[in-house]
């Protein structure tokens, strides 16, 4: 079970959180110019990397705040935690 550093509450057990999937997915637009392929990509296509993954987490059983996590999917090491809306800061693995 992961130990996640909530930026508002501090380190808490994974059981208190909800994972919201991949971060930094931008909605394409304007609507009239987006073809079906780009919509399908936006709605359904997700990365499944072996290594660093950026994902959104919700501290559901705590402060109820969303934030971003950079996590290594192999070792489960949490590389960085940063607020929503921030651009991706570089980590040591650097993607």
């Amino acid at each position: 079970m992961l130990l996640i550093l909530c930026p508002y509450c501090g380190p808490r057990a994974e059981i208190e959180f909800r994972c919201g999937g991949e971060s930094h997915i931008e909605r394409p637009g304007p609507y009239s110019e987006v073809d079906d392929g780009a919509w399908a990509d936006y709605l359904f296509t997700r990365k499944n990397p072996k290594g660093e993954h950026r994902e959104r987490w919700l501290h559901a059983a705590g402060c109820r705040q969303w934030f971003n996590v950079a996590r290594d999917t192999v070792s489960h090491t949490i590389l960085a935690v940063y607020p929503m809306g921030k651009t991706r800061p570089p980590t040591e693995a650097g993607t």
């Binding site: 079970m1 992961l2 130990l3 057990a13 994974e14 489960h76």
Partner: peptide, 9 residues
């Protein structure tokens, strides 16, 4: 001790 899980659990 029956299990060694993530992040030192």
């Amino acid at each position: 001790a029956f299990g060694f899980y993530d992040h030192g659990l």
